[in-house]
Design a protein around this nucleic acid. Structure first.
Lengths: 254, 254
DNA sequence: GAATCTTTTGGAATGTTTTGCAAGATAATA
DNA sequence: TATTATCTTGCAAAACATTCCAAAAGATTC
């Protein structure tokens, strides 16, 4: 194993467990504690970690819905299940707005046969269909937000304001009984425009989003038609959402 | 196995596994570690790898993150030379419109340090900068034209009509003394909008485009400020273009 | 087709970096 | 303050990189 690889694995491991002791890390990457120490110092300088006595912790928010990497294995099987379940909700021949966000990305992967028209501001989604010509994909214009691979800015908002679609499939950072919130303020305006443009609103939220609140409020529950989540969603909140008139679908565990 | 093939296999292998040790690579391509070392040095210079102690790592695990590798190796070295020469034409701090097309794609690869603002309708170009945050990239909206990864349609035309930029770097299908032509009728309207939006017009055309005519006329030579081509361009036509007041730059053979 | 030149390849000698260990220094805890 | 755990520093061994060289493989010339 190369030094590079080892550091990468340390980061990946910490991404999963959030905090780990030196011993734990050393064992995981099969190196001495000295080496891990040195690695941690350089990684800390790079800015993703914070060393503590006896171990290290990641700085980056552990589950950022919109930080896109296809290598993201975070709640992967749940997201896949949600993707499948969500696609089954859609009839054929519909125009669909797809939000950016990792969960919705997994919806897109199953969408190829269903939807003839997809509108999105997500580069990863666009790339997904860039070589397949079954689907017509419309990409909203805008400024590329680097880390996320999302198009943002007034151009994007304007593009969605001028559109009409049957369904919008959305991501978000958190959901409570007070409504839906998101962490990236830049995206809020765009998401609002998406909500206005679509007749039916579906939110795809894995169970970790339940009971969480992010900084920026996006919309109330009255806007939402359906929520697709996985089977580990907290039952209490699910029941409460249903009494509020929101359809909640639990994707079966695969 | 040829050297070319070997390097290609190294790249392909790394594309899959992200990291690999020298031993691992040497075994995979059935060559000595010395040879692999040399290969890695040249591949690193080409920009796709990064050498590390004990092995190598790909710089962009583009596999599916923002995937869109232009596998096109047609006239590669010429296009690279044109790319370099073209970038040297640009001062710093400029807004640049980038046309879609493989030649212009190679310009983009050298543009990172120069231009703070890039406007394009090309997905490959967008992907190139999607993870780098030195450059601000504006992507025009539109419908994805599958095979080419280009955004087309009225939305795209409108986006460019509303813009102003210092320079437009363009591709085309052919150039003669009668003007510049292009084969994709869908792109003509967009390219015209680009030309109108920019103050200075640069065309990047490898030597095979000289003396060729495609179906759709794009613009006359009076619109063109500069043409960047490679050293194999026919001297007669180059001279004739110069008498017409067009600056023609021959990128030196590398 | 032979002879010569150029390029590429694999290995050996020589530097450089990384690694793991141990000893002293520093911080946490009672 | 004593005690323990964790951290830094210095060092030798190992792993790795670089440079140089001779043999092999191609390309060129006659």
């Amino acid at each position: 194993m190369t030094a590079e690889e080892r550091k990468h694995r340390i980061e990946a491991y910490l991404q999963r467990v959030e905090f780990a002791s030196l011993e734990e890390l050393a064992q995981h990457v099969e190196a001495s504690t000295s080496t891990v120490r040195r690695d941690l110092t350089t990684l800390e300088a790079a800015g993703n970690l914070r060393r503590t006595h006896g171990g290290a912790r990641i700085i980056t928010p552990k589950t950022d819905e919109f930080a896109f990497t296809s290598r993201d294995t975070h709640q992967l099987s749940e997201k896949e299940a949600i993707g499948k379940a969500c696609v089954e909700l859609l009839g054929t021949n519909r125009s669909v707005i797809l939000d950016a966000g990792t969960t919705v990305y997994h919806v897109a992967r199953y969408l190829e046969e269903k939807a003839p028209q997809i509108v999105t501001n997500s580069l990863p989604v666009a790339n997904l269909f860039a070589s397949a010509n079954k689907v017509e994909v419309i990409l909203a214009g805008g400024v590329i937000y680097p880390r996320l691979g999302v198009l943002v800015g007034p151009m994007t908002v304007e593009a969605f304001s001028k559109m009409r679609a049957d369904v919008a499939i959305m991501s978000a950072g958190g959901i409570t009984l007070e409504g839906i919130t998101n962490s990236h303020a830049l995206l809020i305006d765009i998401q609002r425009a998406m909500l206005k443009a679509a007749q039916k609103i579906i939110f795809c939220l894995d169970h970790t989003k339940f009971g969480r609140q992010s900084v920026s409020p996006l919309c109330g529950l009255d806007m939402v038609d359906t929520i697709v989540t996985d089977s580990r969603a907290p039952q209490g909140l699910v029941a409460a959402l249903r009494t509020q008139g929101v359809e909640v679908i639990l994707a079966p565990h695969t």
